[in-house]
Design a protein around this nucleic acid. Structure first.
Length: 286
DNA sequence: CAAGACTCCTGTCAGC
DNA sequence: TGCTGACAGGAGTCTT
């Protein structure tokens, strides 16, 4: 019963590829549709959901759906809805929305034809915000760095950004003001792939290494988005549970397992309060 | 200013 | 079996 009513859902810890895939997944269901009703069951997300959101959105048509960093942006005539999935949030398309409400289904956006976009977030690190500002000037968006898959994110850009930084390179590539969308898991993977030690200071990484790193970041994200596309197809009319789109993680979570290149046991540590995994032999500090 | 610590929250899992 | 505590993580904010 439950499985049949869920048209589209993805369960993950959202990093950029997962948000992109979610955006593509909900797009055809939302574009040019009019919101019939907004049901808020739980206001307490990272920031409280504005209580006048139903009044603002009901009977309003959706003009566009896009993504900036890990925000999904839904545009209306009079403003934008910003949705961030935090780390446990996801969006699902549901039929017959009055049925099958489960724990942590916090918000429903009811659409025509008994369709419903539903926001589910157990840990409530996500957010749903409304703004009438232009999106570029929104305080949460205006300091964001370039999209990692855009041409603005390249070796010379990143090298310049790192030049005066003494923090660990891993912390820096996770800094959304430097480049958006690189979360903990993909930062581990990208550093492993480019053979850079995560503790290397930003200002000691060479241009050559930066070039490798930029390529690795693009590659790991692209691969995940492609896998996400596949997942998307599989998820039509099904209920599912991919873990990171079943993308093979080579380093993350592999403490004490042999490195795939040199068989040295993978080590772990904390950098900036985040779990970090690296091969002490392949990933150089120089 | 930069860097690092702290904070929000709940599901999961190890240990007793 | 049930309880307790540690842990995971995005990113804004606070402290150093």
């Amino acid at each position: 019963m439950l499985a049949k009513s869920i048209i589209f859902t993805i369960i993950f810890m959202p990093e950029l590829p997962e948000v992109e895939t979610t955006m593509r997944g909900i797009y055809p269901f939302l574009i040019h549709q009019t919101i019939q009703q907004v049901i808020i069951r739980e206001h307490r997300l990272r920031w409280p959901i504005p209580s006048d959101l139903p009044k603002l959105l009901e009977q309003e048509p959706i003009l566009s759906i896009s993504r900036r960093a890990k925000y999904i942006i839904i545009q209306f005539h009079h403003g934008h809805l910003l949705i961030h999935l935090g780390m446990s949030g996801h969006l699902k398309m549901v039929e017959n929305s009055q049925l099958n409400v489960i724990k942590h289904d916090h918000v429903d956006f009811i659409l025509p034809n008994h369709l419903c976009l539903r926001f589910h977030d157990p840990r409530r690190f996500g957010s749903i915000l409304w703004t009438e500002q232009t999106i570029e000037n929104h305080p949460l968006l205006k300091h964001l760095g370039p999209e990692p898959l855009s041409e603005h994110f390249n070796a010379s850009y990143l090298y310049a950004k790192l030049k005066n930084k003494t923090s660990a390179i891993k912390t820096l590539i996770m800094n959304q003001e430097i480049v958006v969308g690189v979360g903990n898991i993909y930062s581990n993977e990208a550093l492993f792939s480019s053979q850079i030690h995560p503790l290397m200071k930003g200002n000691t990484v060479t241009l050559k290494q930066v070039a490798r790193l930029v390529d690795a970041i693009k590659q790991v994200l692209n691969k995940a988005i492609q896998a996400g596309g596949t997942t998307l197809n599989d998820f039509k009319n099904v209920e599912g549970k991919p873990g990171y789109f079943q993308q093979e993680l080579l380093i993350y979570g592999k403490k004490d397992k042999p490195c795939i290149h040199c068989q040295t046991p993978i080590q772990s540590c904390k950098i900036g309060q985040r779990s970090t995994f690296f091969c002490p032999k392949c990933q150089t500090k120089k």
